[in-house]
Amino acid sequence: MPREQGRKVVASNRKARHDYTIIDTYDAGMVLTGTEVKSLRAGRASLVDAFGHENNGEIFLHGMHIPEYSQGTWTNHEPRRVRKLLLNRSEILRMQIKLRDDGVTLVPLQVYFNNGYAKVELGLAKGKKAYDKRQDLAKRDAEKEINRELGRRGKGMA
């Protein structure tokens, strides 16, 4: 059977982009068991309350929920276990330096399959204040209104 080609998104953490300012992003592989991969291929995962943590020069993903595989037996996995992430040494060192800053955290943004391999997109993030969130919403609404008006003018309606 040929390997999958392209990128297939399994789970996305849209709330993270609303609650945090993303400073930098990294793509990392994950160490998974067989039933976890099968459950991910079925499109079942949740990134709510998930975060990355550095421990002894390695990066781990905590709180990601991959439900048990329905056809799994006694070999099924624990849904919220800690998963090791696979990154280059230089990427880990850059992350460690940036994570030392106050208020910076590691947030998973997406879980996806890239050419058959399960990957997670991590973002180095800094929390937004309530007024930052309101400014972003106002900016987005203004851009929508501008695009709507330009569309009307292009059609000769205004």
Rank of each mutant, 00 (worst) to 15 (best):
55 N>S: 10
55 N>W: 07
56 N>E: 14
57 G>P: 07
57 G>A: 03
58 E>L: 04
58 E>D: 09
59 I>P: 07
59 I>Y: 06
60 F>R: 07
60 F>L: 07
60 F>H: 09
61 L>M: 13
62 H>Q: 12
64 M>C: 12
64 M>V: 12
65 H>C: 06
67 P>D: 00
69 Y>M: 01
69 Y>F: 14
70 S>E: 11
73 T>H: 03
77 H>Y: 01
80 R>G: 07
81 R>L: 04
81 R>Y: 01
82 V>I: 15
82 V>D: 13
82 V>T: 15
82 V>K: 14
83 R>F: 02
84 K>D: 04
86 L>M: 15
87 L>E: 09
88 N>C: 03
94 R>N: 15
94 R>M: 11
95 M>K: 11
98 K>V: 02
99 L>S: 05
103 G>H: 06
107 V>K: 11
110 Q>F: 12
110 Q>I: 01
110 Q>H: 14
110 Q>C: 10
111 V>G: 10
112 Y>F: 15
113 F>W: 10
113 F>A: 09
116 G>S: 11
117 Y>N: 14
119 K>W: 07
122 L>C: 10
122 L>I: 12
122 L>R: 09
123 G>T: 05
126 K>H: 05
128 K>N: 02
128 K>Q: 08
133 K>D: 01
133 K>Q: 08
135 Q>F: 02
135 Q>T: 08
137 L>F: 02
141 D>R: 12
142 A>L: 12
